[in-house]
């Protein structure tokens, strides 16, 4: 697949980074604002899709290896299970950090408030872990299907015509 025109590539180089930063914001503020790990991960995967479509597969896969996304995915899932096991003194996935002070441990005022970033215990940690997993998983699906598209069109039974 050839890269798109210079206009598309320039605009993408500028605005794709805003998409990535917005996705990171949605993941990190998952316990305060609407959003969370899944939604923010999907937004960051949109960043990967933008780069992949605008610059073409050859140059994109020259920048990053596709194994790194699989490792992100595995690391996210293992981190989520570890957060679950850390609370095993009470139950699996027990929120052992909330309202204890320290990391993510401060209390929030009851009722509508402006939000305390250092609150909610393991919910923030699980958000980050799941966000990492969704980023890796959706990007890996995109890249594998992109590579498989070439593989299907080359080896099709009737020789599908590749329109350059």
């Amino acid at each position: 697949m050839r890269p798109l025109s210079i206009v598309v590539r320039t605009i993408c180089n500028i605005f794709a980074w805003f998409v990535a930063i917005f996705g990171a914001y949605v993941i990190l503020h998952g316990h305060l604002t609407p959003g969370g790990g899944f939604q923010g991960g999907a937004i960051v995967a949109t960043f990967i899709a933008l780069l992949l479509v605008a610059h073409g597969g050859k140059s994109f896969l020259g920048w990053v290896k596709k194994e790194i996304f699989s490792s992100f995915e595995g690391a996210g899932l293992v981190a989520f299970v570890c957060v679950g096991f850390l609370g095993l003194s009470t139950t699996f996935l027990y929120n052992f950090l909330a309202l204890k002070g320290g990391l993510f441990g401060s209390a929030v005022p009851i009722g509508p408030n402006a939000g305390v970033l250092n609150s909610s215990g393991t919910i923030a940690l699980a958000n980050i872990a799941v966000g990492l997993e969704v980023v890796g998983g959706l990007s890996a699906i995109l890249i594998f299907m992109f590579l498989g598209m070439r593989y299907v069109s080359e080896g099709g039974k009737e020789g599908v015509k590749d329109d350059k």
Partner: peptide, 27 residues
């Protein structure tokens, strides 16, 4: 719903993968 959306996305990706392989095999 949050759970269902992510699972729906995963199954859609798997479905499209199988469709691509069916097209490769049968034309």
């Amino acid at each position: 719903t949050l759970t269902a959306i992510v699972i729906g996305l995963a199954t859609t990706a798997l479905l499209l993968t199988l469709i691509m392989l069916l097209y490769k095999h049968y034309g």
